[in-house]
Design a protein around this nucleic acid. Structure first.
Lengths: 147, 147
DNA sequence: GTGCATGCAAATTTTTTGCAGATGC
DNA sequence: GCATCTGCAAAAAATTTGCATGCAC
């Protein structure tokens, strides 16, 4: 397994630069987050981040979302998971409904739409939430062809 | 207040035609749903649909979603609300972040995008979830101009 | 040293389940 | 009549809170 330190330190810096303290509990949550293969629930972090109490895990995950370290992934059934946002900013997800893996769309694909909608509706559209669901390439190949 | 019977009956028919029984509990939930001004939580229906037990309210709302009578509205903070879908099929919402009211976009605005993304990513994109957030026209006028 | 952060455990809140009995069709 | 549906109450799951103590800076 690749060391996660390389990913850990930039996040630690982000915390420090915003005046948040880098405690061992927060490190413990961060390590658990970085060890996830893809998206995850708070519960999974609770299980792995044994160095941090329940409340602290919830508080830390919320903080990491506010800082943009994590992003929320909305599954098709409405459940909310979390995922490392990485260095990118605003982006969207393609969620494979079979294997569950997520692929990021690095650029936001609705910028133009937002402009159109603002014009046609009179709304001042300030934000949006967009997720795509489908079959990733390898699940497509594994699945029987459409009948 | 306008009678809701006109709206109730088509839904009752939808239940009947699919083989679901039209019980007084389900009517009670439906009346509560129809009396909502806009989107609502299960809890609000629990409070109003006094003729139905807690479990039944949850079960009925889930059923109504499956039937397409209700749709889910994802708020910006991740909370899930519900809303009458009306006669329209697939559609999206513009949620006003100030007054909370929802405006429907009757046509789906991402159809072309889905095609592009399928091509460029190799995903078979089968579904999506899209919500817009912003200020509705009247809240824009009430709000101070951008500074 | 001082104030942010934590742990703990209990309180809340939200949703589900199992099952005997009721009831729509 | 009989399968579907319901209420109830308890269980399960998910999240928050209060507060004394700890520890990062």
């Amino acid at each position: 397994m690749v060391s996660e330190t390389a990913e850990l330190e930039p996040i630690v810096s982000a915390l420090e630069s915003r005046g948040y303290r880098v405690t061992s509990s927060r490190r413990s949550v961060l390590e658990a987050v970085l060890s996830q293969a893809d998206h995850f629930t708070v519960e999974e972090i609770l299980r792995q981040a044994t160095g941090a109490g329940r409340a602290t895990v919830f508080r830390t995950i919320r903080l990491l979302c506010e800082l943009g370290v994590l992003c929320r992934v909305l599954l098709e059934d409405g459940r909310l998971h979390y995922r490392l946002a990485g260095p990118r900013h605003h982006h969207h997800h393609l969620v494979c409904v079979t294997c569950g893996r997520v692929r990021d769309l690095d650029e936001c694909v609705v910028g133009n739409l937002v402009r159109d909608i603002s014009q046609s509706t009179g709304f001042d559209v300030q934000g949006h939430w967009l997720e795509f669901y489908g079959l990733c390439q390898s699940c497509r190949q594994a699945a029987p062809p459409a009948e």
